[in-house]
């Protein structure tokens, strides 16, 4: 079953700007799905329509089989939204934010209290339950929004740039939380500008640009399309010039650092053999750029305004 189905979804704002140009998208139940795109591509508009914050111009949205227009309450009950910016009442305590949210979804007081305790403990916020929310740190506020979105146990969790502006430690802990939530059966749709985040968390991906879906695939297939991977090698000893290696492009960055472009058919074993033969000892290796980032840029660059959308899922 699809957690989400969009059909020919269009949005034209009052100023005439066409933010969505008839997109089709399916997200399977249980998936961890990335919706990516540059700023102004239309992903926030799409999420706004799915979560009823923006009125669509035409097209349809179905959430777990419930049409958002015809079965509004049932469709909305399935969704939990974590928005980009803090949007809870900053004068409320953490606990009351979750209890109010539970009330909006019709949870009884007893169940609301149970779910509030569960979600706050899951997000490591139980000790802060009586704290007025404006006194929380930025990372804690983000976690409050995730806990709030989960309090009514939604089947579909939409995370709109949940880790924007948080430090790497909090980001990692939030990734772990998101993975746990997904493993418990909740479908997750994630938008993010951190492509490393999408690559490590998501199984399927759609890229939106200029209001069109320009890519819709599973992450593994997408990454498999990379023909060349770029690595940075740290060397044990300094070298005077870049070595010449058959089949690879190589560049000397510093006397102890090399940048290597390795074609997909060229194994790393062969690369290391070639380097060993030239008496070059490698102490460490890392990806020069994030692989998804490279594909993302390729797709965005190859789909300028007015080009035809593609989708291969």
């Amino acid at each position: 079953m699809n957690a989400l189905s969009l059909r020919n979804l269009r949005k034209i704002y009052n100023n005439g700007f066409e933010a969505l140009k008839g997109i089709d998208l399916d997200v399977e139940a249980g998936d961890f799905f990335a919706l990516l795109g540059p700023n102004g591509a239309g992903k926030s508009t799409a999420i706004g329509i799915i979560s009823s914050l923006v009125n669509e111009s035409s097209g349809s949205v179905s959430i777990f089989g419930h049409d958002l227009r015809r079965e509004r309450a049932k469709a909305k009950s399935c969704i939990g939204l974590v928005p980009q910016e803090v949007n809870f009442n900053q004068f409320d305590t953490v606990k009351s934010i979750l209890l109010n949210q539970a009330g909006y979804y019709g949870l009884s007081r007893k169940l609301a209290l149970q779910r509030t305790e569960y979600c706050l403990k899951q997000m490591d916020l139980w000790d802060k339950r009586d704290t007025v929310s404006r006194r929380l740190s930025g990372g804690m506020k983000r976690r409050v929004m995730i806990a709030r979105a989960l309090v009514h146990a939604p089947k579909l969790l939409i995370l709109d740039e949940p880790t924007a502006g948080v430090d790497i430690e909090i980001r990692r802990s939030m990734w772990q939380m998101m993975q746990e939530v997904n493993q418990q059966g909740t479908t997750i749709i994630l938008t993010t500008h951190y492509l490393e985040e999408a690559e490590s968390l998501c199984r399927n991906i759609a890229i939106i640009n200029h209001g069109k879906i320009v890519e819709n695939s599973d992450m593994a297939s997408l990454l498999a399309r990379l023909h060349v991977e770029h690595f940075v090698l740290d060397l044990a000893r300094p070298i005077a010039a870049a070595p010449v290696l058959e089949g690879c492009q190589i560049e000397r960055v510093t006397d102890k650092t090399l940048s290597v472009a390795v074609p997909k058919e060229h194994s790393l074993n062969k690369l290391f053999s070639q380097l060993t033969a030239q008496n070059i000892e490698v102490t460490s290796l890392k990806n020069k750029t994030n692989r998804l980032e490279q594909l993302f840029m390729d797709l965005i660059d190859s789909n300028p305004i007015g080009s035809k959308a593609t989708g291969n899922k």
Binding site: K76, I79, P83, N87, F88, N89, Q101, Y104
Partner: peptide, 17 residues
């Protein structure tokens, strides 16, 4: 204030008529 602070989104997203 609910509009200004964007808490209105809590109500709009929820299944409340």
């Amino acid at each position: 204030s609910t509009k200004f602070q964007r808490n209105i989104e809590e109500l709009l997203v929820a299944p409340i008529p």
